[in-house]
Design a protein around this nucleic acid. Structure first.
Length: 795
DNA sequence: AGCACGCCGACT
DNA sequence: GTCGGCGTGCTC
């Protein structure tokens, strides 16, 4: 029997186990994580090399690796180990993790072209007409073959009539052609034209349309290109997020005493290996400038810096600082970039063109060589947790692990740290650093709490209180700017029939629909379900419809009636469709083209607006009563954050919280900007109810279209889980199964189990072994399972 | 996840 | 008769 080299290959998808392949000698040695082309089922797939493998059971026929797709692995040993850790910790398929680390152009199979074989025998008439032996097949032909019948192409490949051509064309420069220019051989233009005479010569660069007008037909154009008379001019690559301009003046900013202390504390640690820091700095205390100084220290040491931020469009201010400080040495990785931009950015990082990467959670995979420091800005932010496509990783926690693997410090920063992080700091596991003042003349704003039960204006503008109304008028008259914050988009969160009391709900998710005035649309904010022209009640056909509550759209409509001087701009995910658009809205406001900004969450982050002197929070309580153990923390963070938008430069800022529960301690702490008081209370409640940081959570979610089967399956899983936990001596508490807070989402019912434990790694390992022993936990095919380790919420 | 196979209902 | 719906089973 010939000796074989058996290797483990991971393939993206829900099959979390690896597959064993035979590696032919001529493919040569591989690096961990290297991309391979392997036969899989009836087709071929892109696989990732995991390492050598043991022979599988004898009934399995081992296939051969077809080829390696790159000369060497894209993963450094450090990055591969990090991905491996992530797959294990978050119960993810290693291939899914490795794929998340690559720009999409490198993870979607491979670019394929087809060619007719040289020798072809008998063929059906329809195909015979198309067939040109030995020639490449145009994409149009492929398309028409696909229309002839399903999987004709695949069949022809199997029969050897069509051959596949694999090209490593991700390396090809496929920037679009912007125009054409004449080469030095322009005199030879006579060769192009016949009969009708040559097309005219021209100077400089002309686009294809311009050339057409000059008499350059497509035929002439291609002929001239072939003769090298014309030279295509490729479009300039656009620098990602170029619209965010650097602020060079930040280089001149001097650190105040506190900021200097922080820099002086972290700097020596840069040479001393892994160490986590928690930087607790009040809003406006200048955390970004501290990050810049630390980054400079790392750059001086010829190392690189990775900085994570929440969603990038909202962190324009942070990026502007980094651009101002470090210019072209900074790049960003972000989902709003085109695939091409992502690839360019990723390549630049690998090649050492950029030493600093700023990006959201996915940037944790940046292939930076020799990382010297990792920064996680706004570490409490919920957007660091990825919950839908696997890997369901936490960007902040993963950052800590990547820092550990690189043996470098990690700085977590926030104005309202997560309870978990602050707890770690209080236990001495992270070093706490504090910024308690705003630099220069800026001071924290005064916060006034308004009791809506007493001071609410009745009637149409019921969401604005008298004190807020008066204050807004005063500020607008004084030519200052105002932000109104409302954590709810749409027109009215809820409709009710004025006659029978019926409220329309989403047919797939069974939650109340939100009314949008444009087109009388009802929309589900969870699944996107929409119905238009809602004008009469579904149940009694009554036409007297009541609009309960208020969303940003309704408030926007009422503002002109309330404030004659207001020039309003609205910012929410409906008004800002793309990421750039959100930034444009903020820019227009910053340039004082508007004096009143009305918006949701999106207005709360990273915005530096020196002329804003008043922030009104229309409904400070909203969100705090959600069925989620983190809802207080999130509401508190949001209130601090939004209050921090007021009074940045010389002007004394004011904040008004409108609330129906002015006695609530959450509101009191937020109005005093008292993080420590909030933390102390929250920590007690977390301990009483056994929530993080005292335990780790794993959420096991089942979904199915049949509620009864779902219920039985979930209950059965619960029993088996309990048995296995005691068998493996893992101390864990299992809650449930309960219906999920959003128990009916996108046409399927959902039940979940909560596992609380302090042996998280052992738990996930047990689940992994169980899953491979009993394929997919022996669940019925109709029931889906998702295992979310360290979930951010319990929805 | 794909992608095949396979078994039942609405058409020419 | 067929076209095509999506239930279910497999992938080294």
């Amino acid at each position: 029997m010939p000796s074989r080299t058996l290797i483990a290959v991971a393939i993206t998808g829900p099959m979390r186990r690896s597959f064993t392949y035979d590696l032919p000698d001529d493919i040569g040695p591989l690096g961990k994580g290297q991309r391979l082309l392997v036969p899989f089922g009836k087709g071929r797939k892109l696989g990732y090399y995991l390492g050598p493998a043991e022979p599988p059971p004898s009934h399995i026929t081992i296939k051969q690796v077809l080829k390696k797709l790159d000369e060497e692995s894209f993963f450094s040993p450090e990055l591969f180990d990090f991905c491996h850790w992530m797959a294990e910790y978050y119960f993810a398929n290693p291939a899914d993790v490795l794929a998340s680390a690559l720009p999409s152009m490198l993870k979607t199979a491979v670019a394929v072209r087809y060619r007719w074989a040289e020798q072809i025998g008998e063929l059906p008439q329809a195909i015979h007409q198309l067939c040109k032996p030995g020639r490449k097949i145009s994409s149009a032909t492929i398309l028409s073959l696909h229309q002839t019948g399903k999987s004709v192409v695949r069949k022809l490949i199997r029969e050897g009539i069509i051959e596949e051509v694999w090209e490593g064309d991700a390396d090809e420069d496929n920037r679009p052609t912007a125009g054409y220019r004449m080469t030095d051989d322009a005199d030879l233009i006579l060769l192009v034209g016949k009969g009708k005479g040559p097309p005219p010569q021209f100077y400089g660069e002309k686009s294809r349309t311009e050339l057409k007008e000059l008499g350059w037909s497509d035929h002439y154009l291609s002929k001239a290109l072939k003769l090298c008379l014309l030279q295509p001019v490729l479009a300039e690559p656009v620098h990602p997020l170029d619209f965010i301009k650097g602020r060079p003046e930040v280089r001149g900013l001097k650190l105040n005493q506190e900021q200097q202390t922080v820099v002086d504390t972290v700097t020596p640690a840069l040479a001393a290996g892994f160490k986590p820091f928690l930087l607790h700095g009040i809003t406006g205390s200048g955390k970004t400038i501290v990050y810049c100084h630390l980054t400079q220290e790392v750059i001086n040491r010829k190392q690189t810096v990775l900085m994570l931020t929440p969603e990038i469009a909202l962190s324009g201010a942070t990026l502007a600082y980094f651009r101002g400080y470090f210019g072209d040495r900074v790049t960003v990785i972000h989902s709003a970039m085109t695939d091409r931009e992502r690839l360019d950015s990723w390549r630049g990082i690998r090649q050492g063109k950029y030493q600093i990467v700023v990006g959201p959670r996915s940037a944790i995979f940046a292939p930076l060589p020799d990382i010297g420091l990792i920064i996680v800005d706004e570490e409490h932010d919920g957007s660091y947790k990825q919950d839908d496509p696997s890997p369901r990783f936490h960007g902040r926690d993963s950052a800590i692990m990547r820092a550990k693997l690189n043996n470098v410090p990690v700085v977590l920063g926030s104005a309202s740290p997560s309870v978990e992080s602050y707890y770690q700091a209080s236990q001495g596991r992270y070093q706490l650093l504090e910024l308690t003042q705003r630099p220069g003349e800026a001071v924290l704003p005064d916060v006034r709490v308004v009791d809506m039960r007493i001071d609410g204006v009745k009637g149409e503008a019921g969401f604005v209180s008298f004190p807020l109304k008066k204050e807004v008028e005063k500020r607008l008259a004084a030519d200052q700017q105002v932000i109104l914050f409302l954590n709810r988009r749409g027109y009215a969160p809820m409709l009710r029939c004025g006659e029978c009391g019926f409220t329309p709900t989403c047919p797939s998710c069974n939650i109340r629909l939100t009314y949008h005035k444009v087109g009388h649309r009802l929309t589900c904010h969870y699944c996107g379900f929409t119905r238009s022209n809602y004008s009469s009640c579904d149940q009694c056909f009554g036409t007297r419809i009541l609009y309960m509550g208020a969303g940003t759209q309704k408030v926007e409509e009422t503002i002109p009636k309330l404030f004659a001087q207001a020039q309003t701009i609205r910012l929410d995910s409906d008004s800002a469709a793309g990421r750039i658009s959100a930034h444009q809205i903020l820019n227009a406001f910053a340039k004082r083209e508007f004096n009143l900004l009305l918006g949701t969450q999106m207005v709360t982050k990273g915005l530096d607006m020196p002329n804003v002197s008043l922030v009104g929070v229309l409904s400070a309580d909203s969100g705090s009563d959600l069925p989620d153990f983190r809802s207080s923390e999130k509401t508190f963070a949001r209130l601090l954050q939004v209050a921090g938008r007021s009074g940045r430069a010389g002007i004394k800022g004011e904040v008004i919280f409108q609330t129906y529960a002015p006695e609530s301690l959450l509101i009191t702490d937020a109005s005093r900007q008292d993080y420590k008081s909030f933390y102390a209370r929250e920590l007690v409640s977390r301990q009483e109810c056994s929530f993080p940081p005292f335990v780790r959570l794993t959420n096991v979610v089942f979904s199915a279209s049949e509620e009864k089967e779902l219920e039985e399956t979930a209950l059965d899983f619960y029993e088996r889980l309990k048995a296995r936990l005691s068998q493996s001596k893992i101390k864990a508490q299992v809650l449930g199964p309960h219906p999920c807070p959003l128990y009916q989402l996108r046409k399927s019912y959902r039940r979940h189990l909560f596992v609380k434990t302090n042996q998280q790694v052992a738990l996930v390992r047990m689940l992994t072994e169980w899953e491979s022993a009993e394929s997919r936990f022996k669940l019925p095919a109709t029931v889906k399972i998702i295992i979310d380790v360290d979930p951010d919420d319990m929805m």
